[in-house]
Structures are given as C-alpha cells and as structure tokens.
Amino acid sequence: MDFVWGGMLFLSLTVGVLTGQGGVVADAMLAGAGEAVRLCIDLCGAFMLWMGLMNVAEEAGMIRRLSALLQPVTARLFPASAKAAAPITLNLAANFFGMGSAATPFGLEAMAAMQENNPKPDTATADMCLFLCLNASAVELLPTGVLALRASCGSADVYAIVVPTFLASLLCAAAAVLGCWLGRRWSRRTG
C-alpha cells in the first residue's frame, strides 16, 4: 500500500510540475481530501443505522446462531476465521442484493473479527486477502445504479444486461479466489 499510494502521489506531482499544472494537481488533492470528509459524514448515518441494528441482533444471540449455521460454508473459504463467519456472510449478502451502504459496516465488522485472531496485527492474513478480493469482485444480483442510468437514458431493454453482468461478476469472483490462491502459494515460496 505504501508503494501504491506513494507512487500515485509522486507520479501526479511530477507530471503536474512538468506540465506546469502543479497548482491544479494540488487543488485536486485538497478537493479529494475534502470529499473524503463529506463522504465520511454521509457514511456515518448509514453506519449508525446498520451497526445499531447489527448490535440488536448480536445481543439477542442471532449473530452467534447465524455463524454456527454458516460455519460449514465459510470454514472452507476462510479457514482461520470462525468468529467472523456471520459478518462475512452478511457483508457478501448485502453486496449481492446491491445494498452497498449496509455492506461496508458488515465488512468492517468482519475485518475486526478476523484481526482478533491475527498473530501479526500489521500484516494481512490469507483470509483477509480473500475477503477483500471477493469484495472487490462485487457479485451482485441487480446492479441498481447501472439499471437506473440505462432507464433514464431511454434504453429499449433496460434489463438485458442483468444476466451477462451476473455471469461476469461470478467469473470475476472465481478469478479473485484463483488470484488469492496463487498469491498464497507465491508468498509461501518467497517466505
């Protein structure tokens, strides 16, 4: 992450200075940071709603029972994360039904649960890598945003993209699992 982030900043600043647009780049950075603050405030409401509800389910024992129920499935994909089974599933389910605002707090909860069993807290575990890659591949039943845009632009068949989108995201998820498996093998070999 250090490398990626540093590289992006270095590249944009150098290119900006070379093309005489250093000021534009600096302004854009400032705007980006401001946007993050606004986004966090927007997110805060959604987080409160979902974390509150999740805590109701947690204290009532629903999360624990759900975890136990889902254990056999998640244990295969995430062998070291028994405690995170419920939030992982809830996160993937929220993504699946296109509820992005609910997916994030569940995802963060899952990360926190996985972090508890992490022997090296500053390094990602294999389960975390896979979890993130699955999140990044976004298996979604209904891409609501895209459908809305198609409808507003007057498409003749708004829903024509649903099946290919779903299949493409499945292939994407399969590639994510494969990529993580390769990454794990590679990192084991290099130590």
């Binding site: 500053d122 975390m128 890659c133 998820a173 494969l178 990529g179 993580c180 390769l182 990192s187």
Partner: peptide
C-alpha cells in the same frame, strides 16, 4: 490497522 496488505492488490487487479 493492517499495513502490509501482501498479495491483496495484485490478486484484486487480476480479478
């Protein structure tokens, strides 16, 4: 607070 993300990014980009 994880800083070393290991192979997450390459695997995600691959996917």
């Amino acid at each position: 607070g994880v800083k070393k993300t290991r192979y997450t990014l390459p695997a995600a980009l691959f996917s």
